[in-house]
């Protein structure tokens, strides 16, 4: 009896939580509420502009008036437009050559910086300079360096009596293409070098000691320790580098504006040229949309070709 009385006291009806409290106890609701700001930001600043860009690519919108849906007409025109194909070619060529250059020189620089050098920190800080300087500033510097009349390189060579006329840096298609690639490599090396240096410093020295005991040559140590251990970070850095290079705009636009005769247009500069100064927003957007498959391919290539190695998942690399 007494136990029954006690139990009634204990089974006192629990006070029902308020509707608000129950709402916030609901896991699904909480997830939605917590994600909302992030999703909202992404939708506003990422999905909407991207979606708008893709939509524009299928319209004939110009700067002066709203467009109407024209299906794939923009792409049909671009497909037969030699200037567009020249921009596609140069974008791929520019990305490929500049990436190879940046990685070869960047890796070399990283290996050098990984040695014990006097004033190591200062050196590393200086190495970063080309990357820290705003691109437009370095582009203007290169614009002067490549100027047909006032190039410092031409001037120096002529003063030394090695040349009679100024060097043709950007006055003919192929020299302009190579000059821009050189500028891009100069600018991109620090990013690669510093990232790879960070990767190098995570490699355990005991691996090198073991290799030394086994009598491995420097090349063997690089080939069988440094390089494989760097692979994961190499893949990430390369993905970023390819994306940055492929979508480069400022260097080319500041130095050549796509000239001479459109030979150095990248897809990004051509998209801008057609879309904003040319006023053909739809066509410009179509060129920009045409970059997406290339970027997706480059990203997938980096990931699958370079990063998906079994040893990364802790298995032996057979």
């Amino acid at each position: 009896m007494s136990t029954a009385a006690a139990s009634t006291a204990w089974t006192k009806v629990r006070q029902q939580p308020s509707a608000l409290a129950r709402l916030f106890d609901n896991k699904a609701f909480l997830i939605v509420v917590c994600l909302l700001p992030a999703v909202g930001l992404l939708m506003t600043f990422l999905t909407y502009p991207l979606g708008l860009g893709v939509w524009l690519a299928f319209t004939d919108q110009t700067i002066g008036r709203p467009g109407v849906w024209i299906g794939i007409e923009n792409f049909e025109f671009l497909f037969e437009d030699p200037i567009f194909w020249s921009a596609v070619f140069y974008s791929v060529f520019y990305t490929a050559v500049a990436t190879v250059g940046k990685f070869a020189l960047g890796l070399w620089l990283a290996l050098l910086l990984n040695q014990h050098l006097p004033m190591k920190s200062l050196l590393r800080a200086i190495i970063l300079l080309p990357w820290i300087v705003p691109t437009v500033l370095s582009a203007i510097a290169f614009w002067w360096i490549y100027d047909p009349q006032f190039s410092i390189i031409s001037w120096a060579l002529m003063e030394m009596g090695l040349r009679e006329t100024p060097v043709d840096f950007i006055n003919s298609p192929w020299s302009a293409r190579w000059s821009l690639i050189a500028a891009n490599i100069w600018r991109g090396i620090p990013f690669v070098a510093i990232s790879l240096l960070a990767g190098l410093q995570t490699i355990s020295p005991s691996l090198y000691e073991a290799a030394l005991l086994d009598g491995a040559s420097p090349w063997q140590r690089f080939r069988h320790i440094t390089f494989p251990m760097l692979m994961p970070i190499l893949a990430i850095v390369m993905t970023f580098s390819i994306i940055f290079t492929f979508t480069d705009f400022q260097l080319v636009y500041s130095i050549t504006r796509g000239g001479p005769v459109n030979s150095t247009h990248l897809m990004a500069t051509l998209a801008f040229q057609r879309g904003i100064p040319g006023g053909q927003l739809g066509e410009g957007a179509a060129i920009a949309v045409a970059m997406i498959p290339f970027l997706v391919f480059a990203t997938l290539f980096s990931y699958f070709a370079l990063a998906r190695r079994k040893w990364q998942q802790g298995e032996s690399n057979d």
């Binding site: 047909p148 009349q149 100024p166 006055n171 000239g259």
Partner: peptide, 8 residues
């Protein structure tokens, strides 16, 4: 004069 193709 040389370079007019690159002139801005």
């Amino acid at each position: 004069v040389q370079g007019t193709l690159a002139w801005g």
